[in-house]
């Protein structure tokens, strides 16, 4: 079966400590719980979580929704966004099935990047590699005023969204929107057999989530 891989890249640097990271965990939990109620997402969507603080780690490999368990996430350290981009490309190469004559591969992965700060490593090699691949919908989210929106625009020129702050209700709205985006994408690939990965296939974001 053709899977819809979804990679969530989450900033776990020191500045995310406290309410932001708790809100992310909570948002992730809501996301999984909501997707499990949608038959198409439950069948199609596979989730992976990559965190980046002092190092980038795939804390949840690409996992079927029904088998997904909340990982332990704690915040601290710097922001190696560049490393995280390298890692998501590598994970994709290892985990996502390519189409061959005998087998239909997976759908193009969706990527959501959430960060509240400026990368502490050189992000350019990661950006170059990330941009060399074709993704389904790819969205980066500037959580709060500290994020470098211009840089995020280089990573996902298709879509950068902004949150006024990284508090509970705002992040919750963001995760709801991510959930709706995954639901609508899994619906569209089921119904029309296509996923253009363009922004107009994603539902309009709530007021808390501003498109930059």
């Amino acid at each position: 079966m053709r899977r819809l891989p979804v990679y969530l890249l989450v900033d776990v640097s020191g500045s995310m400590h406290g309410e932001p990271i708790e809100s992310v965990k909570n948002g992730l939990q809501l996301l999984v719980a909501a997707l499990r109620k949608d038959p198409q997402a439950l069948e199609t969507a596979y989730l992976s979580v990559i965190t980046f603080g002092s190092s980038a780690q795939q804390i949840v490999p690409l996992t079927e929704l029904s088998a997904f368990n909340m990982p332990e996430i704690s915040a601290g350290g710097c922001t190696v966004l560049g490393e995280a981009l390298q890692l998501v490309c590598k994970c994709r190469e290892n985990e996502v099935t390519k189409t061959t004559a005998e087998q239909k591969g997976d759908w193009r992965p969706m990527v959501f990047i959430l960060t509240d700060g400026v990368p502490t490593d050189d992000p350019q090699p990661g950006i170059d590699k990330f941009r060399s691949m074709k993704w389904g919908a790819s969205v980066s989210c500037a959580a709060g005023p500290g994020a470098d929106k211009a840089l995020l625009d280089k990573i996902t020129p298709e879509c950068v969204v902004e949150l006024a702050s990284a508090d509970q209700s705002t992040l919750s709205a963001f995760f709801k929107w991510v959930t709706a985006s995954i639901v609508s994408t899994s619906k569209s690939i089921n119904e029309s057999g296509t996923s253009t990965g363009s922004m107009d296939q994603l539902p309009p974001p709530p007021p808390e989530v501003q498109i930059v």
Partner: peptide
């Protein structure tokens, strides 16, 4: 009409090995 499936075959160079496999297996 775009190519919708996962058919990307772009050449990608190897990066430093930092994929700490999975703390998830702990669960």
């Amino acid at each position: 009409n775009e190519n919708h499936g996962e058919t990307d075959t772009a050449e990608v160079t190897e990066t430093k090995d930092n994929s700490s496999d999975s703390q998830n297996t702990a669960t």
